[in-house]
Simulated scan of single mutants.
Amino acid sequence: MNALVLFDSMGGNTEKVAGAIHEAIEKEQILCHMIKLDKETDLDFYDYDLIFIGSPVIDWLPTKTMMEFVKTKLKEYNGKGMIRPSAPIIPGKFAICFGTFAGPHIGKREALPMTMWLRSFLEHIGFMVLDTWHIVGQFKDRDDLNINGRLGNIQNRPNENDLENVKNRVEGILASLEAWK
């Protein structure tokens, strides 16, 4: 199995989560590439059997960099005839979408459109999306928003407990995929 953790991060929250995912995958002796997205990133999703793709939530969506990258890849794959009607699932291609959010207004519901956006892309290219994960992260340099939202005090999140939970989820996904073999 060849795995990818592709992410964008602005304040470091999503990078912490990506690091926890990467660590849990490598613990299982699985080849895993961890890539922080930038304008120079070039990769082929089909080179990977298991993809974790994540972003912070910005106005209910992924970062602009992530959105541009995904749209470019979708256009590229469509131009090659790889996007087919009914979006058939390609055997052995799996994904998880994850996002970090602070949710000072409505909590987790602010993150749902972002992971659904990423999920739609992955399903269009034939990956079976196994789950979407939403992890609380603090606002950088905004203590007023870190302590006064619906989620209560989110200072120093994601914390060790949050990251341990992510690692446990990864272990569960890997165990489930092992059972499919």
Results as ranks from 00 to 15, higher is better:
Leu130Phe: 03
Asn2His: 15
Asn2Thr: 14
Arg157His: 04
Trp117Leu: 01
Ile147Val: 15
Ile25Phe: 05
His124Arg: 05
Glu26Ile: 15
Thr14Phe: 05
Met66Gln: 02
Ile125Arg: 00
Arg142Gln: 14
Ala95Cys: 00
Glu178Ala: 12
Ile147His: 07
Glu160Cys: 06
Gly149Leu: 04
Val170Ser: 01
Ile21Met: 08
Glu76Pro: 08
Pro104Cys: 10
Asn78Cys: 08
Phe52Thr: 00
Gly79Tyr: 05
Gly103Asp: 10
Leu130Gln: 03
Pro56Glu: 03
Thr115Ser: 13
Leu112Met: 11
His105Asp: 15
Gly103Trp: 09
Ala102Lys: 00
Gly81Phe: 11
Lys140Arg: 14
Met1His: 06
Ile89Asn: 02
Pro113Tyr: 11
Gln155Gly: 13
Asn161Gly: 07
Pro104His: 03
Gly92Asp: 12
Gln29Thr: 14
Ile58Arg: 15
Gly12Leu: 06
Glu68Trp: 09
Val57Arg: 02
Thr115His: 05
Lys16Gly: 04
Pro88Arg: 03
Phe127Tyr: 02
Asp162Cys: 03
Arg84Val: 06
His22Trp: 13
Lys27Gln: 12
Ile173Thr: 05
Val166Tyr: 02
Lys75Ala: 15
Asp47Thr: 06
Lys93Pro: 01
Lys181Thr: 10
Arg109Cys: 08
Cys97Pro: 01
Met34Trp: 05
Asp44Lys: 04
Gln138Tyr: 06
Glu40Phe: 07
Glu164Met: 13
Thr63Leu: 11
Gly12Lys: 07
Gly11Gln: 12
Lys80Tyr: 07
Phe98Trp: 03
Phe52Arg: 01
Gly92Ser: 14
Leu177Lys: 02
